[in-house]
Design a protein around this nucleic acid. Structure first.
Lengths: 335, 335
DNA sequence: TTTGAAAATGATAGCGCTATCATTTCCTCA
DNA sequence: TGAGGAAATGATAGCGCTATCATTTTCAAA
């Protein structure tokens, strides 16, 4: 593995052996200069560093990982990086891992069970030192794969009672209940939940339904959509539940899309209303929701904080294995 | 490398050797079943597959990569994944790479030259088969590192005359000129550009200035900010150039932040104006810009298409090395 | 039934680096 | 100056898999 795949005629990429020959030392001394310079005498070290510079040597971590049984990498699996809340989580975990020399291997499940398992297998074949994933593994096969790997596994954005190893999240069911209760207390009658079919959304839906029942309201409507645009979510609600007076959206992007659709349908006045015709609550506390008019009520979750906490748990097995970062209902102009 | 780092007492992770012993074949036959099942007889293949299933064997790609001189990975370097336009690009390239069995190793530069070089070295030590990065390498050292690696390198979001290897982007200078010309033609007088200090933004700034000059306008103002929130960008413009009547923002998030700040400063009426007090143009055509009120004028760039095209160029050296995806000025309510 | 070619499987020797034990060198103290 | 211990460096043997050549098995044709 000395030549790149694109140009077999180029000079070979220098190996540690080439550095050793140029510096007149044994290969393991070069390795020591790179990894443990403190145990190499300064004269020898300078000679080796000079050879490294002249040759442009870049250590081969593939070989080093095999020899040392450490990859210094973390596998990260998210449904889709295009969803800002997960991008924030990846940002947060990267901010912890990268300064420590860990590389992030990113994979996406597209909210598909089969693909999630395939991506887990692909990640595990890279022998990462930990896996951080959004949600808990969906299938028994995925769960078993992770157990067998014997590495730290941190599930995020939800809080299973018994995670494979560790979890950082919040109680999705409770979040749904809190929103449902808020709508009931505000006198809302025709409740709707719009989002996907994943477990986290389903937990929120169940909490939402429970709150409606306890308030003696009619069973809320669930508008199921696959991951898509905010505009798509808005259109789906207006098409499926045009008479709703309160919508809990799976994320702020959907909430914004719905508010925009309501505006176009002339169900949103020129100024934010004290009592909006349709109350809308999102999730994630995206900045866009704060900039939007009306400002968007939301379940505040700090996605980046989830990422940071997950990375810390992944790197330190002595840390608590189940961390509840909680959430907060933030009420703004959207109801 | 058979035990994970977190539990040395667990049964060792099965190797290809263990499968070979259980199936009663040589190790290379197991390798063939995994990589080239077509050249293994069905009886042997079934025996091996059975052993693989029973042992829960997950191939070790670290070892396979070293032995085969192929990692099936691509290093991806972005300034920050929290910026939606780059997240879209990562989504696009992943959609091409993942189905082909490539893993994405993600790194972030935080818009810092030194950190970019460190991240490039970290990526290259993983011996990726290609590098896809936002922008061209900033330093001569980074450029040299990439040349030496002898692998495909695709620079995105800008279009250098002579990329290290390949580039997919658009003419940033021209985009700035087009926006400047639009503002001049609309009778705007006090032009402002708000964004970062990176080369792409600077190219846009230069084009913007050129257009203003050609229209006989006063030199535009440049409001420099480090990567931050839309609200931060809005506040910076109002603090530094409160009398502006036209602002070109480095991205749609900044444009939205500015519009929101204008609204709070009562410089945005309750309904989108036919001739807004301050014209605002962003970049990236984010969905949020389409949902916002006023809808946001923008330089339309398809971030995901950039990612897809970049992945295709990275994988096929016969493809053109410089691809101009162009851009489009989209005029909406924000001016 | 024999022969030849193709298919299938195995043996060998690494890939580039490093854990670990062995040897050499250096330094301090008596 | 010599002895002992610590520091520095080197030798050895893999890590888990695979490229490549060698050998065996299978199949078809004469």
């Amino acid at each position: 593995m000395e030549n790149g795949p694109s140009d077999p005629l180029k000079p070979p990429v220098p190996t540690l052996m080439a550095v050793a020959r140029m510096a007149g030392v044994s290969p393991i001394t070069v390795s020591r200069v790179v990894r443990r310079p403190d145990i190499v005498s300064s004269g020898t070290r300078l000679r080796v560093e000079d050879a490294i510079r002249k040759l442009g040597y870049v250590p081969n971590m593939v070989a080093g990982s095999l020899a040392s049984a450490r990859t210094k990498s973390v596998g990260v699996l998210v449904p889709t990086i295009a969803n800002s809340i997960f991008a924030d989580t990846v940002q947060g975990l990267s901010d912890v891992l990268e300064p420590l020399g860990f590389s992030v291997i990113l994979a996406q499940s597209g909210y598909d069970d089969r693909r999630e398992d395939r991506m887990l297998a692909a990640l595990l074949s890279r022998r990462p030192e930990a896996i951080i994933m959004v949600g808990a593994p969906v299938t028994a096969e995925g769960t078993e794969m992770l157990r067998r790997a014997g590495i730290p596994v941190v599930e995020t954005w939800e809080l299973p009672e018994v995670p494979v190893d560790a979890a950082v999240g919040f109680d999705n069911h409770d979040a749904g209940r809190v929103v449902g209760r808020h709508f009931a207390k505000a006198g809302r009658r025709r409740l709707v939940f719009v989002g996907g079919n994943d477990r986290r959304a389903t937990q929120r839906w169940h909490g939402f339904v429970e709150a409606a029942r306890q308030a003696g309201l009619a069973e809320p409507r669930r508008v199921l959509i696959e991951w898509q645009s905010g505009a798509g979510a808005g259109a789906a609600v207006l098409a499926n539940a045009p008479d709703t007076d309160a919508v809990f959206a799976a994320n702020d992007a959907y909430a914004i899309g719905l508010l925009s659709a309501l505006r176009r349908a002339n169900r949103l006045g020129p100024e934010p209303a004290a009592v909006p015709q349709v109350a809308v609550v999102g999730l994630g506390d995206l900045e866009m929701g704060r900039l939007f008019s009306p400002t968007v009520s939301t379940i505040r979750i700090d996605g980046a904080a989830i990422g940071r906490a997950a990375a810390e748990l992944a790197l330190d097995p002595a840390k608590p294995r189940r961390v509840d970062l909680g959430f907060e209902l933030i009420l703004r102009e959207s109801g």
